[in-house]
């Protein structure tokens, strides 16, 4: 039995009397064991405390709303308050402009983190106006008219089963997610896995009609790519498919993050979630972002980390394309791109 299971059983009181005695003996004699147990207890206690705190806060909010109302001002307050309220509205409006104009740009800078949370809030606010996404189909017209998405980015196929990968920051807080490209048009995708730390999300296209003939022409490399190797990326920084090439500049990302590569390809908002490929056309990473104030410096999460994370999160139920032989090795770049194109998507998030 694994230690963790032993800890759980001990805390749940499901050990037999003999097991319990043995457990306590080990606890008193084995320091490493005792430390692991204490950490386990500490973590579980924190999880429960966190939950209690959420419940209590929700309770207090509902009491407050019932007794004092959301907007009720029990004491009439000076003008100051009104000004403050106005200020907040203005801030939200400013963020609207930010989101609409900048599309997929979202800063992770700590100092601006508040802005990010305001964007999330805003996402909810825009909901009402977005209910017409698919309703915009004009009678008699073949081309549906879609409302602009709240957030856009890139994504690409993970395997032949309709799973695709993108950046978590694109789909974070999403109401609905669509993917599209010239090959298949637009379809719904659902978020099945997320890894906020690596900034990854796995989506699934459930429409069998679209995915039944999928033959993903690339596999995910489990190796670390060498510095200076030629690499290229594909994605949707705007409505059309865009190719970019450069070299691998570093085997670590910003602040020496070893889960990432640094590349010399100028990536743009909307490139996030797109594939980073090597000369043989194997996926070596997912484009994550670029450094603020630096042109031609992009970052990508290593494919090795992606494989690991998906294995853990999916309990090995989602497999990542990994043929031994690179399928596009020796193929001309233009042909490589042509074959990869149908498996790279524009992600639209509402």
């Amino acid at each position: 039995m694994r230690n963790v299971d032993l800890f759980d059983n001990y805390l749940n009181g499901t050990l037999s009397a003999e097991e319990k005695t043995n457990f306590e003996i080990q606890l008193n004699s084995d320091e490493v064991f005792a430390k692991a147990f204490n950490e386990h207890k500490e973590l579980i206690a924190a999880l429960n405390l966190h939950n209690q705190s959420l419940e209590l806060k929700a309770k207090l909010n509902s009491i407050h709303e019932k007794e004092f109302g959301n907007d009720a001002k029990v004491i009439s307050i000076s003008k100051k308050e009104k000004v403050k309220h106005f200020g907040r509205t203005a801030l939200v409006a400013a963020c609207t402009a930010f989101v609409v104009v900048m599309g997929a740009i979202a800063y992770v800078n700590q100092g601006v983190r508040n802005t990010t949370s305001q964007i999330t809030e805003l996402g909810l606010k825009l909901k009402a106006s977005n209910e017409g996404i698919v309703e915009g189909i004009k009678e008699g017209s073949r081309n549906p008219v879609y409302a602009p998405a709240n957030m856009e980015g890139s994504a690409f196929a993970l395997n032949n089963e309709g799973y695709i990968i993108t950046s978590f920051h694109i789909v974070n807080g999403s109401d609905s997610v669509f993917v599209q490209n010239n090959n298949m048009g637009r379809t719904v995708a659902k978020v099945v896995l997320t890894d906020p730390k690596l900034d990854l999300a796995v989506l699934k296209i459930d429409n069998k009609a679209i995915t039944k003939n999928w033959q993903v022409p690339f596999s995910f490399s489990a190796k670390t790519t060498d510095i200076a190797e030629k690499v290229f990326t594909l994605g949707y920084p705007r409505k059309d498919f865009v190719y970019g090439e450069g070299n691998l500049s570093s085997q670590s990302g910003f602040s020496n993050d070893t889960c990432m590569y640094q590349i010399s390809i100028p990536v743009n908002p909307g490139n996030s979630g797109g594939p980073l490929l090597d000369e043989q056309g194997s996926v070596i990473g997912v484009i994550r972002g670029k450094i603020t104030d630096a042109e031609a410096t992009g970052f990508a999460v290593k494919s090795r980390e992606i494989i690991k994370a998906i294995s853990i999160l999916s309990n090995d139920s989602i497999h990542v394309a990994n043929s031994k032989k690179p399928m596009l090795k020796g193929v001309k770049r233009t042909e490589q791109v042509k074959r990869i194109n149908p498996y790279v998507f524009n992600v639209l998030v509402y």
């Binding site: 950490e39 740009i105 992770v108 910003f254 603020t292």
Partner: peptide, 17 residues
């Protein structure tokens, strides 16, 4: 556990996405 006991886990970098 790794997230919880690693002190620097939640630090984010200055990357523009």
């Amino acid at each position: 556990k790794k997230n919880f006991f690693d002190k620097n886990t939640v630090e984010q970098s200055e990357i523009e996405k």
